[in-house]
């Protein structure tokens, strides 16, 4: 554990490589961030506990369209850098081949318009620091009829599957690496973001969610909020764990964020950790 300006001990090593969160002053490695020291072979870096999202290749993110600029959309994903989604890197409605015409550019708003929420993948990071996204897969695209939550990006770890179907709850969850979490009821025969290939009007015509579906979404949303407030990692497993404890104690969705349940959750967590450490 180090704080800004602390010397990092490298005496045990023959040589060292300066990693993230460090600088070299007079041949000594000094931390520039507060956090935990990580050593991988010769590379020494400091990992802060909380930081604004910085994109990495292949990350799945959720963002909101802020601007339709010529040939591309600009998105807000809460990152440090500018984010753009090129017209050439989206799947057109109906899986049509893109014809590079001015007409396509004029029709951009029929695909995504300002204020739309979408899931996408980081395609490349440019030298000037800007991020390019793509939605070239049926699973990416516009998100409608669900609940969006903002959590600190550090709480969402990169994992194998960011799209999860919580079958027990009937919910589809998208964990954006940028700290945005999307929760929506699962619809039979359609993936979470099938809307990218179908016309947007069709998704809007989808039947409104039933009360049971809405409750399931609220429950999952409160579970995510609870995990975030305790600054615990957010993953399908941890979410289901909260819901399990919730069910065991007969707590309703609306009472999940009360002090008593948060206390109960903490107790449960500490007991689980004790068991695993034994």
């Amino acid at each position: 554990m180090v704080c800004v300006g602390d010397r990092i001990d490298t005496d045990m090593q023959e040589g060292f490589l300066r990693g993230h969160g460090t600088q070299v002053l007079d041949g000594q490695l000094v931390a520039t961030e507060c956090g935990l020291v990580e050593r991988v072979n010769k590379l020494v870096s400091v990992r802060p506990l909380r930081q604004r999202y910085s994109a990495a290749l292949g990350d799945i993110v959720i963002g909101r369209v802020t601007e339709v600029a010529g040939k591309r959309w600009r998105l807000d994903i809460g990152a440090r850098q500018e984010v753009s989604l090129q017209l050439s890197s989206v799947d057109l409605p109906g899986g049509a081949q893109r014809r590079r015409t001015a007409e396509d550019e004029i029709k951009m708003r029929t695909i995504f318009k300002e204020g739309d929420l979408l899931s996408a993948e980081v395609q490349s990071l440019h030298a000037d620091g800007s991020i390019a996204l793509h939605t070239r897969s049926a699973k990416y695209g516009k998100l409608t009829g669900g609940d969006l939550l903002y959590v600190p990006a550090a709480l969402v770890k990169r994992q194998k599957h960011h799209f999860t179907n919580l079958t027990t709850m009937g919910i589809t969850m998208i964990l954006g690496c940028n700290g945005m979490v999307w929760l929506a009821p699962t619809h039979e025969g359609s993936s979470a973001a099938a809307s990218s290939t179908s016309a947007p009007e069709q998704t809007a015509a989808k039947a409104p969610a039933s009360a049971a579906e809405r409750e399931a979404v609220s429950k999952a949303a409160n579970a995510v909020r609870l995990l975030a407030s305790l600054s615990m990692n957010i993953s399908p497993a941890s979410l289901l764990n909260v819901c399990k404890v919730c069910a065991e104690r007969g707590v309703q969705a609306k009472d999940m964020l009360t002090a008593s349940f948060i206390g109960a959750m903490l107790e449960e967590e500490s007991q689980q950790r004790l068991q695993t450490s034994l």
Binding site: M1, C3, G5
Partner: peptide, 20 residues
């Protein structure tokens, strides 16, 4: 300031289950 920052990190790292 340093003491308090370290204490803050310690607390959060423990909650998150990161081994110190």
């Amino acid at each position: 300031l340093r003491e308090n920052l370290l204490e803050h990190i310690q607390r959060h790292a423990t909650v998150r289950g990161v081994t110190v």
